[in-house]
Simulated assay, not measured.
Amino acid sequence: MANPGERVIEVACTEDKLIVDLADGRSISVPLAWYPRLLHASPLERGNWQIAGAGFGIHWPDIDEDLSVEGLLRGAPSPRAKVLSS
Rank of each mutant, 00 (worst) to 15 (best):
E6I: 00
S27W: 11
V69F: 01
L22W: 05
S27L: 11
L38S: 07
K17F: 03
A52C: 11
A2N: 07
I28V: 15
H59N: 14
G71Q: 05
D66I: 06
D21W: 11
I9W: 02
A12Q: 09
W49Q: 09
S27R: 15
L67T: 05
R80C: 05
H40I: 01
L32A: 09
H59D: 14
S68M: 06
M1S: 06
R37Q: 13
K17T: 12
S85H: 08
L44G: 10
A76F: 04
L44S: 12
A12F: 01
L32P: 14
R80P: 02
G53H: 12
P79S: 12
D24E: 11
L73A: 06
D24F: 09
P36R: 06
E15C: 00
L22D: 01
N48I: 04
K82V: 11
D21S: 13
L32R: 09
E70T: 08
I51C: 08
S42P: 02
V11I: 08
A2L: 05
D66C: 07
I51M: 12
A81T: 03
Y35H: 15
L18T: 02
D16E: 11
F56N: 04
A12D: 06
A12R: 10
P31W: 08
P43K: 01
I63N: 11
R26D: 14
G5H: 09
G47C: 06
F56A: 04
V20A: 00
G55T: 05
D16I: 02
I9C: 06
S27N: 15
V83F: 03
E65C: 13
L39M: 11
R46K: 14
G53I: 00
S29I: 14
E10A: 08
A2Q: 09
E65R: 09
G25R: 11
I51N: 09
V11P: 02
L67F: 06
Q50D: 08
R26L: 13
L39P: 03
R46V: 09
P4I: 04
S86L: 11
W49Y: 15
E45Q: 15
L32C: 12
D64C: 13
E70C: 06
V8G: 01
G55L: 05
G57S: 12
S68K: 02
I63L: 15
G47D: 15
A41Q: 04
Q50R: 13
V20G: 01
G25E: 10
D21K: 12
E65I: 05
W60I: 02
P77E: 06
D66A: 10
R74I: 08
G75N: 08
L84V: 05
W34Q: 14
A54H: 11
G5R: 11
G57H: 03
Q50W: 07
L44K: 14
S29W: 10
G57T: 00
N3C: 05
C13Q: 10
A52R: 09
G55W: 10
G25K: 08
R46S: 13
V83I: 11
